[in-house]
Nucleic acid binder design. Sequence first.
RNA 1: UGGGGUAUAGCCAAGUUGGUAAGGCAGCGGGUUUUGAUCCCGCCAUUCGUAGGUUCGAGUCCUGCUACCCCAGCCA
Length: 555
Amino acid sequence: MAEIENRPSNFIRQIIDKDLQSGLHSSVSTRFPPEPNGYLHIGHAKSICLNFGIAQDYQGTCNLRFDDTNPEKEDMDFVNSIKEDVSWLGFTWQGEARYSSNYFDQLYMFARELIEKGLAYVDFSSQETVRALRGTLKEPGQNSPYRDTSIEENLAHFEKMRAGDYKEGECSLRAKIDMSSSFMCMRDPVIYRVKFAHHHQTGDKWCIYPMYDFTHCISDAIEGITHSLCTLEFQDNRRLYDWVIENISIDCTPRQYEFSRLNLEYTVLSKRKLIQLVDDKHVDGWDDPRMPTIAGIRRRGYTPSSVREFCLRIGVTKMDNLVEMSMLEACIREEMNVSAPRRMAVLEPLRVVIENYPEDQVEWLDAINHPMDDTMGTRKVPFTKELFIEREDFKESANKKFKRLVLEKEVRLRNAYFLKANRCDKDDKGEITTVYCTYDADTLGKDPEDGRKAKGVIHWVSASEGKPAEIRLYDRLFTVPNPAGEDEFTATINPESLIIKQGIVEPSLADAPIASAFQFERTGYFCVDKDSTPENLVFNRTVGLRDTWAKQNQG
RNA sequence: UGGGGUAUAGCCAAGUUGGUAAGGCAGCGGGUUUUGAUCCCGCCAUUCGUAGGUUCGAGUCCUGCUACCCCAGCCA
């Protein structure tokens, strides 16, 4: 109960509260209704969390319904991936997954009912004519010459449509509403069209398919949906939704409410653009970790609970929005901070030789797996004469603000000893190749007795015992906050959205299972990519650690 | 004067009968720290798109204006 009280309310929950209090409804039923013509993305997650979250909190139900009225664009691969993604997010739909196509027979009969009431007619006008007669935003439309065909003839035509006697585009069934309506969707909308297409659910049974506006409301009513939640662009369509429900014989009155869709900075969330990114090979596929798809963010290392938390935090309103990426990142950092075991990994290795350390000695030092959680225990980390440190953690000279290794100065090697840099080698290009150091054997697990202080703490990995690993670092996919607003959004793709490092990781990481997650101390949260093998370890950086120092030094 | 919507901090967002602007993210100070992380402490809207009006009192009510989003698929 307390959990429910902690849920942020929103205008939809307030409507539900009222409907429950007034007795309009005694229980709540929602549905998540994707068209199986693409992969789900973080925007869908918002809708999923809304619909399933309401069902959970009000002890109601939420159906998964595939809005599959356009077979040419849909297929089973998409329905399967959608089921997988909804499940991954942690939600369970009521009963079996539904399909709008389950209702094709009923839909057909309701269409007949409309014809019988004189509220629908078969129009043989060409699509061009239909468009021309529809009028414009500011001018009313004109009636179709087929608008006054008799009910009997319309019934016969519709039957012939179903029988396959008419070609695609030859005619359509239109609701007879109002050609002068200020709502364009009410100007005698097409509700059935001819399509000789194979359907993934109904096969070749049908050659006419109902349109969204006719199908959705009826499907909701059939399923007993009380609150039908969709995005803002359907606000006008609500008039048609209500018109259909009012004019057919069905004893359920679902209500549609619209909320604003999610927009996320530095990415795109439209199906068309996502398809383009994949088809034009700007990314490696639907599950590329840079993609805002559920599959992509999952592979990137986001957890279901972090995505749910994000959806909770962004709220539900009717306001157009462009949410900052930092909102999403904060959710996964917060979770990983408490759950991810710490490890050491060097992304860009620089060789360190400890001159006063025995040649072939390997010391297995204890390292704590989590600074705030003793139950996560410890592990052994090998310490040897040659180590790798992060290239950016060493400078020949630096100012006081540089809390890392500097010639003649001392730092603490994380989980190990104090280390002092004596000199370094460079190649012909002036690039530092090796740093020669000495360590203080009396500083393991304690500070030096003479009170010396380390300039900082840096991570490291044994050169001989560490494992090479491919480390994939990701940056925003686009260089502008709102690529969708550009003339050609692909022109703003960030060429450095993926940077691959050949790093070295501590040996305990060698057998980490795919998808397992860690904090690589000082560099971020990482997970094992599906490409990873024992011979070729691959890690994805989910998100970096918060780095106030780097920010301040950017100017 | 087509219609439908939306305007509260850099971003997201509470604010429901008018009573004196929640919270989160980001940011900024300071403390702790063997992660420049975490954690802790403090700061961050005299003002709610704008101009008027009503009122003792307006983010909430009224009027005008402005900006932005959506609608002319046999897509959803």
